[in-house]
Design a protein around this nucleic acid. Sequence first.
DNA 1: TTGACGTTACCGACCAGTCGGTTTAGCCTC
DNA 2: GAGGCTAAACCGACTGGTCGGTAACGTCAA
Lengths: 195, 195
Amino acid sequence: MPLKKTSRDKLLEAAEAEMLAKGYAGTTVDEICARASVSKGNFYHFFSSKEDLGLALLDDYYERNLAIIGQAPTPGSDPRRHARALVDHLIDSAGTMWGGGCLMGTFALELAETNPTIANAVSARFRSVAERLTDGFLPLVSGKKRKDAAEIAEQFIVTVEGALVLARAHHDWSYVDRALARFRKTLGLPQGAAK
Amino acid sequence: MPLKKTSRDKLLEAAEAEMLAKGYAGTTVDEICARASVSKGNFYHFFSSKEDLGLALLDDYYERNLAIIGQAPTPGSDPRRHARALVDHLIDSAGTMWGGGCLMGTFALELAETNPTIANAVSARFRSVAERLTDGFLPLVSGKKRKDAAEIAEQFIVTVEGALVLARAHHDWSYVDRALARFRKTLGLPQGAAK
DNA sequence: TTGACGTTACCGACCAGTCGGTTTAGCCTC
DNA sequence: GAGGCTAAACCGACTGGTCGGTAACGTCAA
């Protein structure tokens, strides 16, 4: 982590906080600048447009979370144990990854019919995450059919995104924990006192 | 269904279509008026503000879907069969209820931190739907513990909302069908060739 | 003739993006 | 290490257009 945050970093950080809370259209460039303590002129020095910022932010968010997923432990040599550890790691990291919401979900719901550029970027990244999770879950399914693992990955993402909607609606983030606990149970994993 | 659609009805219908696609902030009053072929002055004859329209629309949407849920068949006299019929009815009606998205989910994600009035209305209606589903699912759980049925209801809503996010992201509504089929399977219901 | 329904023109606030300029930091030369 | 050059970083007033909402004015049925 750089001790000195650049203006670009500050803008991205501010934009993420604002857009997670108020959406893309609901967040103004002025607000982002104010929160980041960066002048508007300087904003347009780093980003060519609001959409450009949105794309950079999306990429940043995606890379960060993919890195977290990649930090799952791989205990022993049994692939099944690796997969189970991944599930627990995802649940443990939920607060870090989605404590303020999910930028991909927020953008998807809001911009799918409005901003094709961002919409395509979101779609591609969702697909990429699903791919990564499918790989990780593969040892969980009998016969290691990739299609079955993909279904589990899909249901995991569905569960996270849906829980975030309810968490937002009720201002109660425990919806995410409960939903993920139920997801875990459907996999037939031993009662998890995760970690 | 009234043969003669009033201007108010046309406005609500237009607003629903626009807001499901583009969100609350992303939809302008002018667009709604244009789609409904109603003048702007007349819009403000029926609704005191955009927010007022949003609340009316939310209520309309909620009541309509609650009515659909209420149309679930109740075959025979066994409560367990009623509950299973409710599950199948929900899955059958998914296209009708959420074919264009879910207004409650869309508003929740977008307006939770922005518009307390609408946010509260959304929260209350989510709670009410959960209550209704909990009642319906009660016979499914051993011991008929209300808390267990509430968990199933919660997971159902989570599944729908999450699947709608992915459906939007990929412009592929089959995500909803698959997610609900998986949900059904976790309940241990017999392989469903529903209907 | 009153009031619900309807219309157009308009207003002020706001917002993304621009512009003309200043400051700062690195780097070369002497 | 002083002076000079360059480019990146930085600034905030301004602009053109958009949006929610209002005003002032018809129309027609009861």
